[in-house]
Design a protein around this nucleic acid. Sequence first.
DNA 1: CGCGACGTTGATTTGCCTCAACGATTGTGG
DNA 2: CCACAATCGTTGAGGCAAATCAACGTCGCG
Lengths: 193, 193
Amino acid sequence: MNYDNILKNVSKHISLDKTEIAYFISLLAYREIPKNKLILEEDQPCKHINYVSNGAFRAYSFDLKGKESSIMFAINDWWITDIHGFVMEKTALMNIEAIEDSTILQLHKTDLEKLCIRVPKFEKFFRILMQNSYIREQLRTRQNLTEPAEERYKSFTKKYPQFVQRIPLKFIASYLGVTPQFLSVIRKRKVKS
Amino acid sequence: MNYDNILKNVSKHISLDKTEIAYFISLLAYREIPKNKLILEEDQPCKHINYVSNGAFRAYSFDLKGKESSIMFAINDWWITDIHGFVMEKTALMNIEAIEDSTILQLHKTDLEKLCIRVPKFEKFFRILMQNSYIREQLRTRQNLTEPAEERYKSFTKKYPQFVQRIPLKFIASYLGVTPQFLSVIRKRKVKS
DNA sequence: CGCGACGTTGATTTGCCTCAACGATTGTGG
DNA sequence: CCACAATCGTTGAGGCAAATCAACGTCGCG
C-alpha cells in the first residue's frame, strides 16, 4: 500500500515529522472495495472516516416513496463519511456505496481522537476539512435556492468536471434534485445552444 | 457588556483558565445593531465572525430575478458569518441583516488566527463549530432532496420552534425554498389536519 | 446470445409559482 | 395622536416547470 497521496493531502494544511507520519499511518486501515459494495449502511453505526485512495463513492438516502437521492460524491483524494452519525455517534442516515472498484484508507473514530490528542496539528487539519465541507454544502444550498436546474447542472459540470466523466447521469440527477429524464432534457438544451 | 453567555457557549466544548478568558474577551468587539441594518454586504470583504448576544439575524442572497433567498438564521447564542468569504478571504456572497434590534460580539479573522495559536484549544472549538454547521447543512440538503415542502416546514417548526415565533414567515418561506403564498397554503393544511 | 441497466424521448399530470386582490398590522410624518 | 402608506399574511385563478408514466434503442455483462 502506498501512502503518498494521503500524506500529500494532509500536508496541504499541516506539516508532519517522521514520527508523526508513522503514527498517523499506523492508524489507517487499507480496504479494497469492489464496485456496488456498501461501506456504510443506513441505521448502522458509523465508526470510520474514509479517505478514498482510488475509485469513486456516493452517499445516498431514500425518500418516503423509496426514491434515492445522492447526498455527496467522493473520488480519489476525497474524504467521506456520514458526518452526522460519525460525530454524534448515532446510526447512519445514509448509505455509502462504491461506484467503481475502489481502495480506501479508514480512520476509526477512537483513533482519530487519539491522533488529535497526540498530534494536535490534526485538530487543525480536521477543522479545515470540516470548514471546507461546510462551505461546499452552504454554497450548494444557496444554489439550490437561487438557481433553476439548468444553471445548477452547468455549475456542477464546471466545478466537478471529473465527476461528470465517471459518475452515471442518474446519480448526478438525484444530486441536483431532478429526475434523470429531466436532466436528459436539460443536456439536450445545452448541446443545442 | 456581559460575557457570560459567550463564555458559556465556548465552555460547552473547551475549558479555559482566567488568563485565556481575559485574552479571548480582549479580542471581542461589542456592537449594537438596530433592526434592518446590515452587518455584512454582498461583494464586501468578510472580516468577522459574529456571536449573537441578543436579537436575530438572517443571511440571504438574491437570485437572477432579484428574489431573496434566506441562507441561514442566527438568534441568541448562535455564530454567524459568510463562511466562504471569511475563510477564503473572498468578498461576501450574501448579506447579513438584523431582523430585530440586536447586540453582537465580533471576532476579527486575524484575531481568530492569533487566538488559535496562543490558545490552541480554540482550534478544537472552531473545529466543532464547523463540524456542527456542516452537519446542519448536510441534513438540510438531504431534506431538500427527499422531502416535499410540507414535510420540510413541519421539520423546521419542530427543530427550530424559537425561530417560528420570531422570524417573519416570508423569510422562513424563502429558507425552505417556497413562496410565502405557498407556505400559507401549507400552514392552512396543517391546522386542518 | 439474452437480460437488465442506462440514457433518452414523448404524453400527461401535478406541485408550486405568478399575478392580483384583500384585510390586518405596523410604522411614519403631519 | 391620527391619517396614510407600507408591509405582512392570506386567498384565489391561472400558468409553468418539473414529475410521472410509458416506451424505446443501446450497451455492458453474465
